[in-house]
């Protein structure tokens, strides 16, 4: 009986180890191994319509999570090559109640949103964004060829011209009405460039500002159906850390 119990204990421990390894693996693999990008301070200015501390964050969306960005880093270490991803990280940090200006460089192609609501800019200063195109050769869905923007503030894009969106939601009980939605128009060479080199690849640079809410961890995600399966929200969209992340407001 002793031998049996020793072995039984080993099985039990083994099971616990398997469970913990599984949990540990998933906790590690499905979290954000790429660190936190802290906002750069620009002092205090009137960007958000009144005198507020002004900070800025810059990041990009890539069509290929395993690709290398323009500073030679892999977008998503160990990332799935057929999945798009935000980069260099998906976790950002900004001070509470500060004026936050984001620059998102959009390298990916795109198509139609599931819900046209997300083609409207919402919750930014003036409810607008400005987009500057570079090297884009793809046509817009209304026939505009090529689909380019000149940096004039716009309040919406065509719902069928979306590449991705940056949709930052509020926190229950902390910032209940907070919501920022910014559509990122599609980009890309006709060949469908995947890599994301600022110097040589087609891209749309989207700039917008908003006032951060109170302290808390805010979740953002992309509302463009860039995954597979039902409604295009399977695969990458169900995998945390590619097209979803957090904004830590501290």
């Amino acid at each position: 009986m002793r031998r049996l119990l020793g072995a039984g204990g080993a099985v039990l421990l083994g099971a616990a180890v398997i469970a913990l390894v599984g949990v540990g693996f998933s906790a590690q693999a499905y979290s954000s191994p790429r660190g936190v990008q802290k906002a750069t301070s620009l002092g205090t200015d009137m960007t958000c319509g009144k005198a507020l501390p002004h900070v800025t964050l810059s990041f990009a969306t890539y069509a290929d999570a395993s690709g290398t960005n323009d500073v030679g880093q892999q977008v998503h270490p160990g990332g799935n090559p057929s999945w798009p991803s935000y980069g260099p990280t998906n976790i950002f940090q900004a001070p509470a109640h500060a004026c936050v200006t984001m620059h998102i460089t959009q390298y990916d192609s795109g198509g139609s949103l599931n819900n046209p609501v997300f083609a409207k800019v919402q919750g930014t200063i003036g409810d607008t964004e400005s987009v500057v195109s570079s090297g884009n050769s793809v046509s817009g869905c209304d026939g505009t060829s090529p689909l380019t923007y000149d940096g004039t503030p716009i309040s919406a894009i065509q719902p069928c011209d979306a590449g991705h969106t940056f949709s930052l939601r509020g926190l229950p009980g902390i910032a209940p009405g907070f919501f920022v939605n910014v559509p990122l128009p599609l980009a890309g060479n006709a060949a469908g460039d995947n890599v994301g080199d600022l110097n040589s690849d087609a891209h749309q640079t989207v700039t917008f500002s908003f006032i951060a809410g109170p302290k808390g961890t805010y979740a953002w995600n992309c509302e463009y159906p860039c995954g597979l399966s039902v409604a295009g929200f399977g695969a990458v969209m169900g995998a945390y850390g590619y097209m979803s992340g957090y904004l830590h407001v501290v």
């Binding site: 109640h97 919402q122 409810d127």
Partner: peptide, 9 residues
């Protein structure tokens, strides 16, 4: 849409 400007504070 409640803009972020409106919830300052």
């Amino acid at each position: 849409v409640l803009t972020s400007a409106k919830i300052t504070g």
